[in-house]
Nucleic acid binder design. Structure first.
Lengths: 224, 224, 224, 224
DNA sequence: CATGAATGAGTGTTCATTCAT
DNA sequence: AATGAATGAACACTCATTCAT
């Protein structure tokens, strides 16, 4: 069921709240522009970009940004949510549209790179709540989707069996992680190569014995 | 000839220099402590740590740090140099001490991870001179050493032939790149797994056709 | 046409500029207060006063100062512009209102002292662009005005002919130059005496042969 | 009796002090070099030059400077003393060697400019004791010498009678005051012209009525 | 509701002065 | 006695966040 992209975060707690009269069209557009600008700039310059710059790129005043996201953590939260959601969409698409299980995994991995999943890494640093329920839910949705891809590929005997979804997602994130201040087009030239090499290493039969133990996404959260 | 670690930049090679009277023991020790502290903290918190914190960790006043390194760029420069040098040493050790070519490469890659080669990535962002002659020389030394490892493994038919030294070093750096604000021991639990998966993907015979073209270290420099 | 005081640099000449929406009243007032405070403090303590102190005297936060003037040079620039402009106004007033040519020059010279023209001297030292077009234009306006005063006095045979406008302005600036850290009222007690002595020396007929050659304002700029 | 230059400040209180064994030749030379360097750099860059730079120009370590002059005030004190003393020497020379009283005054004034008497102005700002007995004595010596020049020129009817020694010295100092950061040779091209104009204004008969009252050097001290 | 302006706290860097060799 | 190194306090400037229009 692909394409089930999350809607705005604040909107949906109770649908029948008379005190939030009307989310005014342009206000929503502003909010969206801010998130988009933030995602781009976090990718390009790291998660420490001056928020005033984000506001400028979004074409709004800085105070508008702060009205929508009370502090940097809130904005990071939203961007993480958005990237996770879009990545999950890619996983679901790959699941739905690729017949071959390993081809599905491969397609997802490269698509996730294009979604800048690597940008999540540096964003997880700062003091923002990685255990926020909303985030947890989204992460679980992602994990489930990728879990499906992994399980199917394993069942088909195409994937080595000593790895888990956490391994895929962490390595993938690291390999696609942007270098702050570096224009992205250039780095892409290499990342898809490296992702592919990594995929080749994931393929069955295993060519080595891996140290440590396979990782889930929750392991990752606990790492912090 | 392993272990040829670079000594400090200022250290006089010729003892008979009348104009550099005496490099005073404690001053050198201080300089060394600063570089060490900086390396640790750059790895742990990223290259934007307050220099005052670095000074505190090194146990010196902030001005002492500035006496030795006029600005942040100079300190980053020195740390990059140090990490590069130590990594090269590991490459030379592996070359000298491992008979099997692929085992040598494997040993080097894991050793480089322990040297935190990934810490170089975020350090390359800021405004510091990536083309400094000293750095260039050291980078060339590293490239040559790894080039040797790669060539030998290829000749032995153990390494796929559509990759180059740049692919190894970039992917390696990315995979071992620290998450700012995250204690390292935890991350290590995973990185060596992922490095190994990547190595498995490098092994001959190639399991896929790679997109793009193989990369040298100079390609990387030019990416910026 | 006296009294044509320069207005603020940003002030829009054409009222129909859609992209500079509204110069907000209080912001302009703040800007003006900063310039005034800076002028006073530069005169009193020299051009090296902590900008935080200037901000405090202006009754604004330091960041407000930096918002209006990105660095010290920008603030100096504005103050130099203001002092030059006000001095020019005095010259034009004297020209317009005094019938006797030498009386006009005399009046201007004493008025320029009261405008603290001497404060310009120390401000010309630091690294700020003395050739900025805006400054150049204003300096030319001043030079022209004083040139008029000098020429008229010379034509009337009241001024010795071996001097030029640069001599007047430089000597005047030097004689009225403030002593950093000294309250101004005291120094005034003497400066007008010395200015007068200098004027007496300027009067025709010349009582000596001057060394060197007469100076224009551009000579002065080139001195730096 | 010209040439009676003051000897070093600290040396001569009592010649037979057993606890100050021997002022070691090189130590004295160092002290002298420091004062000379300081005089030059105060003139060239103002009295705020980093003392480390002064030490470097003097060719000694910074600590040597601090051994001789416990703080900046002490160094300024010494330089003021030296300049005052040398200026006095010029006054005494002019008195002794010039027959014509006004020629003597003229010669002195130009000579004082060459001694950079103007450098005293900015040095009087900082927190240093202008009433130090040593300084007071030297200032009195200068005042007496110039008083003599002025009195003689007045008696001869060559000097207007509504001025005093303070007027001469203050205006002279101001007119020859260096612009920090500006090479001196250039400024000289103008100063001697302006001094001459001022002298012409001093000449009898007076061409105007001066405001305020004539000033002594002690008036100047009190200004602060 | 949206904005530009204001703010204070934080960081990089310099310098006068003291300390250890 | 002389030196290079060390230090903390000061200042310039930036940025997240709040306020007034």
């Amino acid at each position: 069921m692909p394409g089930k992209t999350r809607s705005t975060a604040v909107a949906t707690t109770a649908p029948a709240q008379p005190r939030t009269p009307k989310p005014r069209a342009d206000a929503l557009r502003n909010r969206e522009r801010i998130v988009t600008a933030a995602r781009e700039m976090f990718v390009e310059f790291g998660p420490d970009v001056p928020l005033d710059e984000v506001a400028r790129r979004a074409g709004v005043g800085n105070a508008t940004l702060y009205r929508n996201f009370p502090d940097r953590a809130a904005l990071v939260h939203e961007v993480v949510l958005a990237v996770t959601s879009r990545t999950t969409d890619r996983a679901e698409e790959a699941t739905a549209e690729e017949a071959d299980p390993f081809a599905a995994l491969t397609r997802f991995v490269h698509a996730a790179a294009d979604e800048r999943i690597g940008a999540l890494c540096p964003m997880l640093s700062g003091g923002f709540d990685k255990d926020h329920p909303e985030l947890l839910a989204e992460r679980r949705r992602l994990e489930e989707a990728v879990e499906g891809l992994v399980a199917r590929a394993m069942s088909a005997g195409r994937l080595r069996t000593d790895i888990a979804v956490g391994d895929v997602l962490v390595a993938l994130s690291q390999l696609t992680r942007p270098l702050p201040g570096i224009a992205c087009p250039n780095i892409d030239r290499f990342t898809h190569r490296h992702i592919q090499l990594f995929l080749d290493g994931l393929e069955a039969p295993a060519r080595s014995v891996l140290p440590g133990t396979a990782a889930t996404l929750e392991d990752l959260r606990r790492r912090a």
